[in-house]
């Protein structure tokens, strides 16, 4: 097994490189992704190696990045669109929900919308306004789209390749605050399918489900909980639409309690969906209702305050206490 240690940014870069190498129809398009290599350097060096026709520096118009990717998909190309920041995806929202999500259906399958929209999402980098958003639920809500989120370099490396190869349009959420954290990457084979849940830690008392940047926080909370005598089972949802619920159900049938964690506000969110589905499926096993840990229902705060907004170890453990307290 060939494993190597790299950052998530590098893993994405390597994954994109491999996809470009393996399929000539794969293109990258986005703002400043060429010479600059993207504001996060995810595409660093790719334009130099694959040319300006395949790694396309675009004018500044997100709707056009996605809209032209639709035309390219109709022509048989697989375009990976980079949205520079989560908060800049909204100009492309119309194209994504009106066209990308619907054209396969409207053409009775004649159009394959094999495009990937990369979204550096969630906060935690001390940025300014519009650079720390978690818009995943808008897209998960839209039939015709799929939404995934990576949380480790290994997943980043494999999931981006799996997403590009997939025939459905995929919103690919990258936790930008974890871009520079290192991890082991297995270059030979992926650990999971693109739409599969991964168990990150075994436990017996409470199942904690999260995705993206929250995973690291959850694992830290699990360490602390263990020192307090509470055993957390930690699950990385990875696929936000569709949700891979069975492994979560198995876990909750064991623990009888669960907590969901996300940076987005919880109103009509991934956490809401998880609580609804898992309550329905695990009703007879539940010792306590599922509890959501999330961002507050306010516009993302100035980032001097963001650590009080994002789910922290304290807030996760507080939720764990609450579900543990239900049966006394």
């Amino acid at each position: 097994m060939a494993t190597t240690t790299m950052t998530m940014a590098k893993a994405l870069n390597e994954g994109l490189r491999r996809a470009l190498e393996e399929d000539k129809k794969v293109l990258l398009m986005g703002e400043d992704i060429g010479k600059l290599g993207g504001v996060f350097r995810i595409t660093d060096g790719l334009q130099k190696d694959f040319g300006e026709d395949r790694v396309i520096d675009s004018p500044l118009a997100e709707s056009a990045i996605v809209g032209t990717a639709v035309g390219l998909a109709i022509r048989g190309y697989r375009t990976v669109c980079e949205m520079q920041f989560d908060g800049f995806v909204y100009p492309a929202f119309d194209q994504i929900v009106s066209q990308v999500a619907k054209l396969h259906k409207r053409s009775d399958g004649a159009y394959v919308m094999g495009l990937v929209i990369r979204l550096p999402f969630q906060g935690g980098i001390g940025a300014i306004e519009h650079h720390s958003e978690s818009p995943e639920a808008y897209f998960a809500h839209t039939a015709g789209l799929r939404v995934v989120a990576c949380s480790t370099p290994n997943d980043a490396y494999w999931m981006i390749q799996q997403a590009i190869a997939h025939d459905d349009p995929i919103i690919f959420c990258e936790p930008k605050s974890r871009y520079w954290e290192k991890g082991e990457v297995d270059l030979d084979r992926p650990s999971h399918g693109l739409f599969e849940t991964a168990r990150r830690r075994e436990g017996t008392d409470v199942t904690v489900i999260g995705y993206g940047a929250s995973m690291k926080t959850i694992l830290r909370a699990a360490d602390t909980a263990a020192s307090e005598g509470v055993s957390l089972e930690v699950i990385d949802a990875r696929s936000l639409s569709p949700l891979d619920l069975d492994p979560m159900v198995t876990s909750i049938q064991k623990t009888g309690r669960f907590v969901t964690v996300q940076e987005a506000p919880h109103m009509a969110s991934i956490g809401s969906e998880l609580v609804a589905e898992l309550t329905q499926r695990c009703f007879y096993s539940l010792r306590a209702p599922g509890v959501r840990v999330s961002g507050y229902h306010v516009p993302y705060p100035p980032t001097r305050l963001e650590e009080d907004y994002r789910p922290s170890v304290d807030r996760i453990l507080d939720a764990v206490d609450r579900v543990m307290g239900f049966e006394g």
Binding site: T204, Q253, K254, R281, C282, Y284, S285, L286, R287, E327
Partner: peptide, 29 residues
């Protein structure tokens, strides 16, 4: 058929958990 039975029956779980939480309804608990 209870919902919980439908959903768990729809996709068999390959590795059943070793120790199950006692199954009951919240009101009975």
């Amino acid at each position: 058929t209870p919902l919980a039975t439908i959903s768990s029956a729809s996709t068999p779980v390959s590795t059943p958990p070793t120790s199950l939480a006692p199954r009951s309804t919240p009101p009975v608990r």
